[in-house]
Structure formats: structure tokens, C-alpha cells
Amino acid sequence: MTTSIKKLPDTEQVLSGNGACGGCPATMALRIVGKALGSNAIMLLTPSCSVASMGMTPKLAYNWPCINITFATAGSSASGITHALEIMKEKGRLQGELPTVFSWVGDGGTYDIGFQALSAAAERNDNMIFFCYNNEAYSNTGVQRSGATPRGSFTTTTPTGKRQPKKNMALLMLEHNIPYVATATVAYPGDLYDKVVKAKNIPGMKYIEILAPCYLGWQFDMPETVQMSRMAVRNGAWLLWEAENGKIDFNNPSSQIISGKKKAEPVNEYVMKQGRFNRLLKGSDAEQRIAEIQGDIDHQIAFMRERAKITI
């Protein structure tokens, strides 16, 4: 059973007075992550929305020891911390339960500039949870395309729409043979909470990617963040799954879409509600563009259905 949102702990690690936009999905997700991790954790950041919104020296809104190095370093800096903790404990300079080391990084810092160091940390199976809050663009610098931007999406560097589909980053992480990979999104807080609690108790490298619909980048109304997140899951644009030791299990409601019990909703409404897509759907090629977006989603569902059958 998924934990109900009503049963989540009252403790808060994201304090009031942070600098995030209203309706910020990354901050919502971080609140839930904080409830699952508790206070004994160390946070690794890279320059991103979360560094901009964590507050400014000397006042900070995150209730953990945290470190921000540079954009490409999320994987390697978390490795530095986790190795330091292990040796300091071994040499008797640290007592008590070791904190959870986690990276909190956007899709740019994960899919693109941070990919190399993340891949190496995963290959070493360093003990950390790497969170990617995926808002499908470089939102902090004013919305430019990333490897996570879906086909057909407007960004300031794809003014006529991105031509290529996004990477399947969570699957790429799974192929590193790490002990735990999961996807989540803010419309399903209990699902996210449970996955973080599970990851916290697994040694080695854990990767959790959270779809984070950003009203600024996606161009929808600020109060609709959660609604957009739910629509993405219901139409299969975002699949909820987790994999312990390489075996993929889909979570509700994605599991019903994969098994065929429930049909994925058509992508039209989702697309038309977002300015990043619909501003490019005013010409005669609108139908073809929507069909391409739908085609990418259909392909992803079909591919993941087959991929999950590989259990060796």
C-alpha cells in the first residue's frame, strides 16, 4: 500500500522563506523527500533553480548541511562526501549513524553536463541517492532545451520546437547495474515518499527521477502544477516505475497502462494546456506535430513494457 499523504511526517526540512517560484514542483518534491530522509542527511547541489531558491548567504532555507560546487559535479561531489564519511568513521573521527548523502539536481545537471560524473559514480556504486528533479529544460537560466526536453517543445533555444525525442535517463541509470532506480512525480506524493524511504535503506547508488512540471517553462497556470503532473502520468508521457536489482516494476496508475487494463489518455489535452507545445500548433502542421508527440509516448510505453520483461 502506498503511504497516504495524510500519514506523511509533520517534520519539514524545507523551511519557510525560500526563493522558489509559486507552484514550484521541485520545492514540493523536496518537501516530501525531506519528510522521508529526515534531518540526518547531507545535500549536494549544483547551480540550478534549487541553489537560486535555497536562499542567499547568510540565510538558507534548507535544513541540512549542504554543498554547491559547480554544474558538472553532482555525482563526483557526492562521492567525495560519501568517501570522506566512510574513512572518518573508520578512523574514529565521526560517531553515530552516518547521514544519508543525496544529490539534488535538475535535468541539465543530470542528463547533460553532469552525466559523465554521475555515470562514473554509478559505475563505482558509491553510496548516495541521486535525485533528478526533471522540469524538462534549463529553467533556471530562462528555459533552454536539455536532453530531457520532449520533441515538439518550445524553449528559447528551440523556438520552432525541439526536433529530437528526450533520453530515457532512468533506464540509462538502470543499465549501470545499480541497486535501485525509480521514477516519481509530485501528483503522487505517497509513491515518492515510499520510494525515498526504500532507497534510504539500500546501500550503494540509488537514482530517483522526479518529473517536475514547471509553469514558467511549460507555460501553464501556476496553480496547475499537480494537475499537469497527474496528466503526464495518465497519458503515459511519464511512467512511474521502480527497479530493485535490475527488475522493473510499474506503479499505479502506470502499471495499469502497461498491462493494458487502462488505456493511456490521449495527449491532446495535455499538449493544448501547455504554451510550450500549443504556441507551435497554430499552423497547418499542427496535427502532424501532435501525432509526433503521441508517437514518442506510444513508443516509450511499448518499449518499457518489453524492457520490463527482461529479468535476467
Binding site: 559547480t70 559535479t73 567525495g80
Partner: peptide, 18 residues
């Protein structure tokens, strides 16, 4: 590590950790 960029990142984070 997989690069000097990462070796220095590891050093920075480890030193910051004490």
C-alpha cells in the same frame, strides 16, 4: 574518478566534509 574535473570535485567535497 573518470576525469580531473571529478578528482578535484571529490577533493573539494571530501575536504568540506572534514
Amino acid at each position: 574518478v573518470e576525469s580531473e574535473h571529478s578528482s578535484m570535485s571529490v577533493c573539494i567535497a571530501a575536504q568540506a566534509a572534514g
